[in-house]
């Protein structure tokens, strides 16, 4: 499941994972020893419903090459409906970012359950590959000194 032969560049991807499903899924990937590229930095949140557009944009601003947000599958939310509100927020944000020219694949959303360790590894792999194809994120990264274009 390894890649990275095409370039040595390892992107940094912030993954906001809900504690009950996706974080547990990521743990299960570990328990099952599914290997995936070391690009993902997981931020554990109680629920995907905790994630706002602001936080996603902040990750990009801070220099993340990609963002992954993952929650429980619809219907499985530990908090009943957090992921369903999140789904609406994310749907609009995703379309809007694409509208203003942020490449699709920078910001990714998915559902991973506590039993989907393999799925988590696959998603981590796939998101890493997407972001690698896009190259380092520049558009919303705030630089200390802006270089002249």
């Amino acid at each position: 499941m390894e890649t990275g032969k095409n370039s040595d560049w390892e992107p940094k991807i912030i993954a906001f994972l809900c504690n009950w499903c996706s974080y547990a899924g990521a743990d299960l990937a570990g328990v099952s020893r599914y290997q995936y590229p070391p690009s993902i930095r997981i931020v554990r949140v109680p629920c995907s419903g905790r994630i706002s557009a602001n936080l996603i944009l902040d990750a990009l601003r801070s220099g993340a090459d990609g963002v992954l947000v993952s929650g429980c599958h619809p219907g499985d939310c530990h908090y009943i409906s957090g992921n369903l509100y999140a789904r609406r927020r994310f749907a609009l944000l995703e379309r809007f970012l694409e509208f203003i020219g942020i490449e699709p694949g920078r910001v990714n959303f998915t559902w991973i359950s506590a039993s989907e360790g393999e799925q988590f590894a696959k998603v981590a792999q796939e998101v890493t590959e997407r972001v690698k194809r896009l190259g380092p994120a520049r558009k919303l990264v705030k630089e200390i000194e802006s270089c002249p274009a």
Binding site: P46, C47, G49, R50, Y85, R89
Partner: peptide, 8 residues
């Protein structure tokens, strides 16, 4: 403590 309100 799910935080749906915070994100909303």
């Amino acid at each position: 403590g799910c935080g749906a309100c915070v994100a909303g």
